[in-house]
């Protein structure tokens, strides 16, 4: 079942810095670990535009260990990137695409996101009442955490 995701967060850092940090596997890992319900065991960059990892994800009572990949499909530095994420566990799968658009505003960066997600297996058959809410919860926490992480790292640089 599909869900649509859309929103915007402000990152307290200049756009060029945000862009450079955005593709750092360590940033992504820290971000994901700040989302309640997600624990990332591993996240590594395996090529220029591909990341692989493993995470435990719990949607209410449906908990699972997922192996996943993130693939950067297209990008236009420093303002636009489209990527795809896929995860699978024995009884579930998730997948989706997202577009991030960065715009500079008074030395800060507005990060707009838009995408669709899809889930299957037990997640869909038992969790369909929760998917929308949980999906949005993950994305909201994730984007906020990403904004905070990017800002913090940007200050250190």
């Amino acid at each position: 079942m599909a869900l649509k995701i859309q929103g915007k967060v402000m990152v307290d850092a200049p756009r060029d810095q945000v862009w450079n940090l955005l593709f750092d596997a360590d940033v992504l890992k820290h971000m994901a670990n700040k989302i309640p319900g997600i624990t990332v065991q591993r996240l590594v960059q395996v090529s220029d535009d591909k990341y692989e990892g493993a995470a435990s994800i719990g949607v209410a009572m449906i908990k699972g260990k997922y192996d996943g990949t993130i693939t950067v499909l297209e990008k236009r530095a420093p303002e636009w990137v489209r990527f795809r994420g896929d995860g699978k566990s024995g009884a579930n799968w998730t997948g989706g695409e997202m577009v991030l658009t960065l715009t500079e505003q008074d030395g800060k960066t507005s990060m707009a996101y838009e995408g669709t997600g899809n889930v299957g297996g037990t997640l869909a058959s038992v969790g369909q009442r929760l998917i929308d809410t949980v999906g949005k919860h993950f994305v909201q926490h994730g984007t906020k955490a990403l904004a905070a992480e990017l800002a913090a790292r940007s200050r250190k640089q």
Binding site: M1, A2, N118, V119, G120, G121, T122, A124, S125, V126, Q128, R129
Partner: peptide, 14 residues
């Protein structure tokens, strides 16, 4: 079922 063939009514809750 959704269009992907996922059974959305897959439990006694649903």
């Amino acid at each position: 079922y959704d269009d992907d063939g996922q059974l959305l009514s897959g439990s006694m809750m649903d």
